[in-house]
Amino acid sequence: MKRLVVCVFILLVSCDYFENKKVKTEDIVSQELETIDWKSVDEYPSFTVCDSVSEKQARKQCFESTILNHVNDYLSKQSIVVSQDVEDTIAIKLKIDNLGEISILDIKTKPETQEIIPEIDTLLRGSIASLPKIFPAVKRSQNVTTEFILPVVVSIK
């Protein structure tokens, strides 16, 4: 008799154990989305010259220095005539989409710089447009769009 009671008790309790719990796909997706760090990428955007660099931070540095060097070279080849000295750090907000296309979202300069060099926006846009092919950033094996601010120091004496 004791065995029968124990078996019936085990059967009653174990019914919940075998019950299938249904998990909704939406719940899995929302839980996964909460765990993703949306502020960082697995690989930064890159140029062909940065292919030999494997460390993440060094690759980011290579990318940024390649853009800065290109912009500086482009601006140094332009004939910019000024009537007074110019010292400014121009902030260029850039977007690189998931296809590797770069675009300028905003250019912030001092009003004095804009007055002394009215064509500065056009020159900066030309330098960015002439960049070599960019490979987009990667997040979880997918190409993603990124935005960043590039500080360009303008010093003309």
Rank of each mutant, 00 (worst) to 15 (best):
M1K: 13
E55F: 09
I90K: 03
V53N: 11
T66L: 06
V41K: 07
V153E: 07
I120E: 10
S14C: 13
S40D: 08
E19S: 13
D16I: 08
Q114C: 02
D37K: 08
I67M: 12
I107G: 03
L99N: 10
S40Y: 09
E43P: 01
M1Y: 14
L105M: 04
G100C: 03
D37M: 07
K108V: 07
V23R: 08
S83P: 04
A129M: 08
Y17K: 13
M1Q: 13
I156A: 00
S127D: 12
L12C: 15
I156S: 00
V29T: 13
R3A: 15
V152L: 01
K139I: 01
L11T: 14
C62Q: 11
S52Q: 08
D27S: 14
Q78I: 06
V144C: 01
I134E: 09
R59C: 05
I90A: 05
Q84G: 05
E64N: 11
V8E: 13
I117N: 04
W38N: 06
I10V: 14
V6E: 12
S54K: 15
S127R: 08
N72Y: 11
I80A: 07
A137C: 04
K24P: 06
E87N: 10
P45K: 05
S141L: 04
S54R: 13
L150Y: 06
I36W: 03
S76W: 01
K110Q: 07
E147S: 04
E34A: 11
Q142D: 06
K157W: 07
I90W: 05
F9E: 05
L150P: 01
T113W: 01
K93P: 01
E55P: 04
L94F: 07
K77Y: 06
D42R: 02
K93E: 10
W38T: 02
I104V: 11
K110A: 08
I67W: 10
S141Q: 04
F47W: 09
I80T: 05
S103C: 00
K93T: 09
V23Q: 13
